[in-house]
Design a protein around this nucleic acid. Sequence first.
DNA 1: CCTGAGATTGGGAGCGCTCCCACTTCTGTC
DNA 2: GACAGAAGTGGGAGCGCTCCCAATCTCAGG
Lengths: 340, 340
Amino acid sequence: MLKRSSGTPTLEEVAALAGVGRGTVSRVINNASGVKPSTRRAVQRAIDELDYVPNLAARSLAGRRADAVALVMTKTDWRLFGEPFFSEVVQAVGDALTEAGVQLLLTLVRTDAERQRLVEYVRGGRIDGALLMSVRAEDRLPDMLADAGLPTVLLGRRSGDERVTYVDADNVGGARAAVAHLVGGGRRAIASITGPPEMYVARCRLRGYREALKDAGIDEDPSLVVQGDFTETSGRRAMAGLLERHPEVDAVFAASDSMAAGALTALHAAGRRVPQDVAVVGFDDFELAEQTEPPLTTVRQPMEEIGRTMVRLLLEEMDQPEVAWRHVILRTRLVVRESA
Amino acid sequence: MLKRSSGTPTLEEVAALAGVGRGTVSRVINNASGVKPSTRRAVQRAIDELDYVPNLAARSLAGRRADAVALVMTKTDWRLFGEPFFSEVVQAVGDALTEAGVQLLLTLVRTDAERQRLVEYVRGGRIDGALLMSVRAEDRLPDMLADAGLPTVLLGRRSGDERVTYVDADNVGGARAAVAHLVGGGRRAIASITGPPEMYVARCRLRGYREALKDAGIDEDPSLVVQGDFTETSGRRAMAGLLERHPEVDAVFAASDSMAAGALTALHAAGRRVPQDVAVVGFDDFELAEQTEPPLTTVRQPMEEIGRTMVRLLLEEMDQPEVAWRHVILRTRLVVRESA
DNA sequence: CCTGAGATTGGGAGCGCTCCCACTTCTGTC
DNA sequence: GACAGAAGTGGGAGCGCTCCCAATCTCAGG
C-alpha cells in the first residue's frame, strides 16, 4: 500500500502518518464519537499536514448514499426562476443543504426523456432525495419519485389531499388577512384578481378572499372575481376589464404582486388614485413591491423559512423512511405599505 | 457472489444472466467497440430484463472521474438568474451536458466558506470541471480553479487579457452594428446608456458605440454617454437625465434591453415618440423585447450557442489537459423591430 | 494485584465498476 | 491444413471509503 505519496492523499496515508488505523481516521473525519481526544488531535494534525480531502465517490460507494439531493424544476418553473419568491427559496435551500454537507443538483425536467433520466439518477444512486418546486396539479412526478422510495419534498401542494411531504405558506390565512385589511379600511366593493384555478395555491387565495368577505358580512359578487395567470400583463388586463364593468370598485386583492403591479398600471391609466379611489393588496412581497407607485401593501411569505423547512423535512425523511409524509404550513404576514 | 438477487441489480448480475464476463457488460454499457453484435444484443437483453442501471458512485471511483461539472454562480450572478439571457444560457448548458451524460451541479459561492467548500469539492473528486457565469473583473476564483488544474470555462471574460478559457459574444461588433443602424437611419445626436465600467462587457459595448460614431465621422460628445447598471431603473433614470441635459438627442443605444426598456418609459413620460423623435436600440434581445412599446430593436446574443459552446470547450478541456486555454467569440445579430 | 465492563482501536471484507492483460476464437493467407 | 494476426472475451486487481467485529486498553471496584 501507500505506493503513491504523490497525488491526492488517501485516508490510508493519513492513517499511516498519524500512526493509527483506517477506522480511526474515518471516525475522525465523520465526527463520530468514540475516539480519544488525544488521538483525534493527532489524526487532525495528519489531515492538516497532508491537506487531506475525502474522496466522495468512494464514500458514496461504501456508504451507500450520495450526499446529494436534486432540485427538480419543470419547464414552467424555470421561467419562475427569476421570480424573487423562487430564488429566495432556492437560496435558503442551498444554504441549509450546504450546512448539512449535502450537494444540490439542479435538474431540469422538460421532456419525458429527461424525466426518465431523473429516474435513472435516482436508481443509479446518485441522489438521496428530491425537492420539487412548484408542482402542477396534474403532475405525477412527485408520486413517481415518492413511490420509488425516494425522499421527496414539494414546495406547495397540488391539492388539499396531498400524499407527499410538502411545505406551504398559509395562503388562505394570508389572503383572508389581506382582504380583512381592506374591509377594515372601509372598502366594500372589493374585487379579486385570481391565479389559474388549476393551481391549488390560486384556489386557496381565492378561498381566503371569500372567507374574509363572509366574515365581514359582505355578499360576494362573482363578477368582481377575475382570473389572471400570475403575470403582470394578466393583472393589467384584468384590472382594465374590471374598471369597465365595475367602475364603483374601491379595492382589489390580487393573488400575486406581479398581478397587483399590473393592476396599478391599469388604475393609473384609468386615472384612479391609489389608495384614495382604489386600494390594492398583493401577495408575495416581491422585491419590487417597495418600489411600485405607490409602494404595495402585500402578504409576505416566509421564503427563507420555507426553504429551510423543506431541507429539514427532506433530511428527516432520509433518516426516518418509516414516516409516510409530513405537511408543514407556515404563517404569512401582512406588510402594510401605501397602496391600501 | 450474486448473493442478492433483490435490490438494485449489479453489473455482475447482468453478466451472469447474459452468460458473459463483467468486462463485456462494461463494454456494452459504455458503448465501447470490440463486442460482437450478437453478444451485444444478448447483454442488452439482460440489461433490459433486469432493468439494470449502473451505479454511478462505483463508476466514478473506478473510473476516476465524476461525470459532473459545477455551474458556479456568485451572489451577484444569482440576481441575474432571472434574466432571460442567463436562463437561456443555463438551459442550453443543461441540454448539452445531458446529451454528454454529465451532471450539472448548481453551486452558489457567496462567502469565503462556500468558496472553500467548492475547492474541497474539486479536490474531493466530485466534479470534473467548472462553468463560471458572469465573472467580475476582480474575481480571482477562475484562476484559483484553473491553477488547481480543473477544466474551467467562463461566460464572458474579465479583461482583454484573459488566461482562462471563455466564450463570449462579439460585444464590440454588436454595439457597432447597432449604432451604425442608428446612423443609417439618419440619426446624429446618438446617446448611449452604458453598464458599469468595471464590467468588461460594458466597456466593450461602449467601445463599439465609439467606433461606430467614428466610422460615421461623428464627433463623440462625452456628455451623451451615461452610466447605468444594466437594470431597468437605471435606464429610466439615465434617459430622464439625458433628456434634461440634451433635449436634442435623437437616438439612444442602451447596453442592455432592460436599460432600453427603462429608457422607453422615460421617453414616454417625457412625451417623446419612439422612433419618430428618438430611436432606441438595446442589447440582448430578451424575451420582453418584442413586447415593449414599441417593440425593441436590439442586438441578439446567441445564447443557445454560447451555452453549447461552453460545454463543448469544457469537455474538450477535460479530454486534452495540455491545452492551456481557448477563447471563442460568437457573432451577434441585429434584430430590427420598431424602436429604431 | 486481579477481574470485567466499557472505551478505543485495527483492519478484513466488501461497495460496484473500470482497466488492462492474458487467453480464446476467428479470419485470411500461403 | 497450419499459422500469424486480428477480433473478441474473461476476470484479477484495484479505486478509497465505511461497516463492523474482534482485539486491546483502561480503570473502578474488590
